[in-house]
Structures are given as structure tokens and as C-alpha cells.
Design a protein around this nucleic acid. Sequence first.
DNA 1: GTTGAGCGTT
Length: 115
Amino acid sequence: MMRIAPKFQCLTDLKSRFSTVRYNSQLFVSRLSFYTTYDDFRGMFSPFGNIKEAKLVMDNRIGRTKGFGFVTFETEVEAQNAIKALNGKIVQGRLIFVESVTNTKADGNDAPSES
DNA sequence: GTTGAGCGTT
């Protein structure tokens, strides 16, 4: 019955535009221990904010972690909070690095927030 | 307790 008018498609464009991550709230976590699992990985970032996305990069060849992952928080503040809390900390015997992400997979739509 | 710089599978 209800057809989507062409004028509403511009709203769809606006929606996809605003649903894009406008904050650099995504973190790159490296130097993780191989014993660190995904549950441990998410568990160490969860108390520092509302995690929107958490990834631990796995290797299909050996079926284990590559030793680094990515965490996306709801806000940039939570991300910076997690950096200050976890960057340079010893986790399971390994000193880990937590820093803002640099999209090498960027489609050209990565807009760093104004600082 | 298996090696150790790096930027990811949707």
C-alpha cells in the first residue's frame, strides 16, 4: 500500500550518514597475549564504557588470535578512558598497547573528529 | 604455557 516516496530516500541518505561513526571511538589493541580469549578481551574493556563493537582478530591457519583486536565504544570519551586505563598495562604477562585506530580499510568515509 | 610487528572477516 504505502509506497516510499522519492523524497524519503534523502532521509535514508541522512540516516546512513548519521549512523556512521562520527567519533573516533574505535581502539586498536595490540601486543595481546595469545592466551587472551575474546571473552577476556571484551571483559577488560566493558567496565570502561558501553562497547558497541569488539573484535579479536583470529587466524584461520592456526585457529588462534593474531594478538591484536579492535574495540568500538559508544562515545569517544569512553574510548579515551579505556586508553588511559589499559594502554601500557600488563595483561596476562604481556604489556599491551591501546590506541586510536587508523583505518587501513577505510572506504574514504573516515572523518576524524575535530580536536 | 607457542613464536611477538602490526590495523580487522561480516
